[in-house]
Design a protein around this nucleic acid. Sequence first.
DNA 1: GCAAGCGGGTCAGAATTCAACCCATCAAAC
DNA 2: GTTTGATGGGTTGAATTCTGACCCGCTTGC
Lengths: 354, 354
Amino acid sequence: MISGKGVRTRMLSVIEKVAPGTLHILKQRYYILNQIQKVGPIGRRALANRLGFTERVLRKEVEVLRSQGLIKSSSQGMECTPTGITVFHQLDKLMGQHVQSQEKEAKLANKLGIHHCTIVIGNADADLSSAGDMARAATEVLDFLLPEGASTIAVMGGTTMVRVAEAMDEQIGSNRDLMFVPARGGLGESVDIQANVIAENMAKRTGGKSRALYAPEHVRSETYSLLLEEPEIKETLELVENASVVLYSIGNAIDMAERRGMNEETLTELENSEAVAEAFGEFINLNGEIVYKLSRIGLQSSKLPSIPHVIAVAGGKKKAKAIEAHMKTAPPHTWLVTDEAAANEILNGGNPLK
Amino acid sequence: MISGKGVRTRMLSVIEKVAPGTLHILKQRYYILNQIQKVGPIGRRALANRLGFTERVLRKEVEVLRSQGLIKSSSQGMECTPTGITVFHQLDKLMGQHVQSQEKEAKLANKLGIHHCTIVIGNADADLSSAGDMARAATEVLDFLLPEGASTIAVMGGTTMVRVAEAMDEQIGSNRDLMFVPARGGLGESVDIQANVIAENMAKRTGGKSRALYAPEHVRSETYSLLLEEPEIKETLELVENASVVLYSIGNAIDMAERRGMNEETLTELENSEAVAEAFGEFINLNGEIVYKLSRIGLQSSKLPSIPHVIAVAGGKKKAKAIEAHMKTAPPHTWLVTDEAAANEILNGGNPLK
DNA sequence: GCAAGCGGGTCAGAATTCAACCCATCAAAC
DNA sequence: GTTTGATGGGTTGAATTCTGACCCGCTTGC
């Protein structure tokens, strides 16, 4: 028998699939109703500041809510009507797990210019449990976004992704026909954290299939074009381009460069160009500009906008700058899974009280 | 225990309340997916014609659906992906009763420039049962739109509204605190079909409250302003202006004029000005322009855009022209409840095959 | 009385939507 | 083999909406 919670979750999932962005709108208005109800009569500017919205955006939302008779305005500020309170409670049940840290998630998503983010408790730098929590949260997001039937999921490598793979189980694969493919060729990492291995591991855990993508890192351009014509590689690359989800992590530029054993010269180059973040083998500076690129085979970050679902997993205070930089180039529908330490750092320089 | 259907209905209702317009979007895409799946590979123009959308609008919708991986395009046209079929079936369960006549409702709503309409089987001119069906459909729409808690409903008079009142029961009133008010003062009708009586009847049937609005029809302007200051009238009028729903019917201009015993002179005037429809005591021509107005006390049609929910009930082949004319001035969020005879007449001059 | 905070108004530029085209291409009919 | 019709996709300009940055009059609490 289907539980009420199951019905609701599945239902929102379908709606988000058919009308992408609805969940975003519902979340925003949920946060607004929640705050208005909790903080009592409050003004537009104060509320906008609280939720990290601009005044004008919040104003438009508020106008809708008022036209629906959910809130009313007076000279003291805005407050919920009885109808508004009732609707809020229903909405509360409806949204369930999708609104946890609530205001903080809204503020963070807003600041980063993306629609959704999930914040788990802790600091991935310090305690291992929050890394596991992020991984679990990532699989929940995946479970929410994926429809029944066949889907292709492009995955990247890295230690974070290893954890995500470990958090997966046959629940994800039930009623689904999943194909995991590495989003990029080898990036010089050690074997156990390579995308190939992770894709295979995910497939094993969820009862799905996987493909490998073996492509040497440094090749001359003639070899490169020949490689792309290899049937096996070509097929896999097509799968990657048409994937319905891409699952990846964001790293610190210097850490990643070292882990990948890049030479002294390149390291200096990266430092000079002020690279702070790495994702998809691309090193970017604080402005989100690509300053160095590894391996041209596989998914480029420029292709992300055309992938239906994009899930980024990264946490820990030390990764805050990298996340912030990366999100400047990420498409708005990117779903970030992070932890409180990173969130606080991004929002207000690490001060959780502000 | 809450049935699955109940959960779904209530849930969509909450979503529509918080994010008005969502249901409209879901419906549109439901119709599109439905057609694409049923008719097989089909082109943009052919599909747009089928559903009564303009090509450009359908194109935007289709682009969203494709970006979500629900449909794919080839030189033969568009068709559903396996994912799309699965999602459609889920959406089908989800929408349930909200999509009955499907394509026809979409076409009609589109042609009239409104978001929703409900079409019941039959011809209200010929058989009485479809008048009852419309009334029942209207109460269902009301049940869907109304939140829990307190709401004010402004109602008009007329035989159609009498039927709507008869279709109401305590189900509508459960968990709700309803107040029915006449939207307008007396319009010269016989007592049993006056808004006052209908409001009282609705209140009785749903366990709610009602207010009366007694205001003479023809008054000099001094008397008029004095009347508006009468506490009892003033209060009721404020309730009307702040109503969350207005429920009314549309009539044929000449029929209504006769029923209200208007004099020969005025009748001639109406004929000369080519009045075809009447609603809210306002007579309008084919272009939706007001050519004559009864009673200036109460809700004006110009105030409709600011009322959260607007439900119009009118059917029968003879009312087609009136409905069409009236909808030219009605706000887009008006929800029309009509019958097949009127719908066919409006869509293609009465030919149901076209 | 006064300042702070409130809702609401305004206005220009950016972004998006929409209609009305045209075009190369493909498939089926001739 | 050619023609014809329908396909998806591109483009352009008008209309609309969104959004940011203001200002204003008002109420409220000090």
